[in-house]
Amino acid sequence: MAKNEQKEKLNEILRIGDQCQEKFLPISSSKLEFIKSHGICFAGTSILKGDYEIRRKTNNAHLIHYTLSGTGWLEINGKQRTLSPGDIWISPDGTQQHYGLKGPKWQVVWFDLKDQGPWAILKNIGTCVRKSVMGARFKQLLEMLIWEFQDNRLHSENVIQHGSELLLAYLEREFKVEYDSKNFDVVNKLHKLFYEKVKSRLRYSWTVDSLADESEMFISADYFSKLCLKHMSMSPMKIVTRLRMESARDLLHSTYYSINKISELVGYTNYFAFSTAFKKRYGLSPRAFRYKYSI
């Protein structure tokens, strides 16, 4: 059945060309009852190419739309704006929508949320676009959940339940930020700093001063530390240590690198300091952890 459809009724348009690729979370499955009961009525990932344009009077749900790569366009009050990587577009239930592909490719993740529970507040904010670091995480979660439905895999129901709970927690976290408009920019910058910049450069000798400089918030190291404690419940260096330990744990579990090499990769020049920090977090030395949990 061809995807290409056009609907011209009550000024509505639905054009989805044959080059577009979409994956949908099978919400109708009984395994996703937890998600449905919490108001998530539709979700998926899309790689849009060629012909793509949507215009409708309402989506009959709150639409949450993340741009991962490429660009799209959105019409708001007769004016067109570009949706770029890192953008989240929020379109409350009852809001007219007109959007489409801009450029050769547009990769997105989206959710339809019922007007209930924590999502009811979205009706009060109107259509808006802002930055978010959550899009890539939602893509990974949705693809993992969709993959679990391919066949009856071992422990698939447990994985689906845990994945569903994580999906809901991330959505609620996203809109807790939305409710507090004074803080969302700070939170996003902190997440980008630690989960993108620091995580990709764990070997760097991070200090509170260098983290504050890298945050692009143009604030003192002392004030940066206070923001970390307020919004992430940890001091800056404790966050860095946690990221280093999590990376070391993954490397011990899934690679054959020497423990000395792993300690260097995650930013330790002293093996004993690394071993002490690892044991403090996981209750085992790196060597004992590898022996117990390695592949």
Rank of each mutant, 00 (worst) to 15 (best):
T207G: 13
Q161E: 13
L25D: 04
N158C: 06
I262Q: 02
T58V: 07
L10M: 14
S46W: 10
K189P: 03
S181V: 15
I88D: 02
S205C: 07
S285C: 07
I262K: 03
E196M: 07
I125V: 00
I121G: 03
S275E: 08
L229M: 11
S215M: 03
W110E: 00
K23Q: 09
L229K: 06
D112V: 02
N77W: 02
F184N: 13
T45V: 15
F149I: 05
S91K: 01
W89L: 13
S258M: 09
I27A: 01
S247C: 00
G117M: 01
D222A: 04
V129A: 11
D87V: 05
Y268D: 02
I295V: 06
I239E: 10
G50I: 03
I121Q: 08
S233F: 14
K105W: 06
Y271W: 02
A212Q: 07
D209G: 11
L122E: 02
K176S: 11
K114F: 13
F289Y: 15
L113W: 06
E246R: 04
K31N: 15
T241S: 09
G100Y: 02
K3E: 12
D87F: 05
E5W: 06
S258N: 08
K114I: 14
E172C: 09
G78N: 10
V266G: 05
K105Y: 05
V109P: 02
S200G: 01
A288T: 14
L229D: 12
S247A: 02
L251P: 01
D222H: 10
M232G: 01
Y179D: 07
Q97T: 11
K102E: 08
L68G: 03
I146G: 02
G17V: 04
L74A: 06
I40K: 11
K31E: 15
E246A: 00
K102R: 06
K79S: 08
T276A: 10
N124Q: 10
Q97V: 08
D222Q: 08
G50R: 05
P26V: 04
N152I: 00
D185M: 09
T58G: 04
I295L: 09
Q19W: 05
L68F: 01
L227C: 11
S254Q: 09
K23V: 13
Y256G: 14
I16E: 13
L113D: 07
R290S: 07
Q161C: 07
L101S: 13
I64D: 01
K226T: 08
H65M: 01
K139P: 01
P26K: 11
G100W: 09
L74D: 03
M237T: 07
Y223N: 05
S29M: 08
E174L: 15
T45S: 12
T276H: 09
L122W: 08
K261H: 10
A61D: 01
S247L: 00
G39P: 05
P104Y: 05
I35P: 01
L251N: 01
K176Q: 15
K230W: 00
N77E: 13
L122Y: 05
M232Q: 10
L142P: 00
S205F: 07
R15K: 15
T82S: 13
I90E: 05
K192W: 13
F149W: 00
N158P: 00
E5L: 14
M234C: 05
L211M: 12
I64L: 12
H162F: 11
H155T: 11
L284M: 15
S285M: 14
T241Q: 14
F138N: 04
A43I: 07
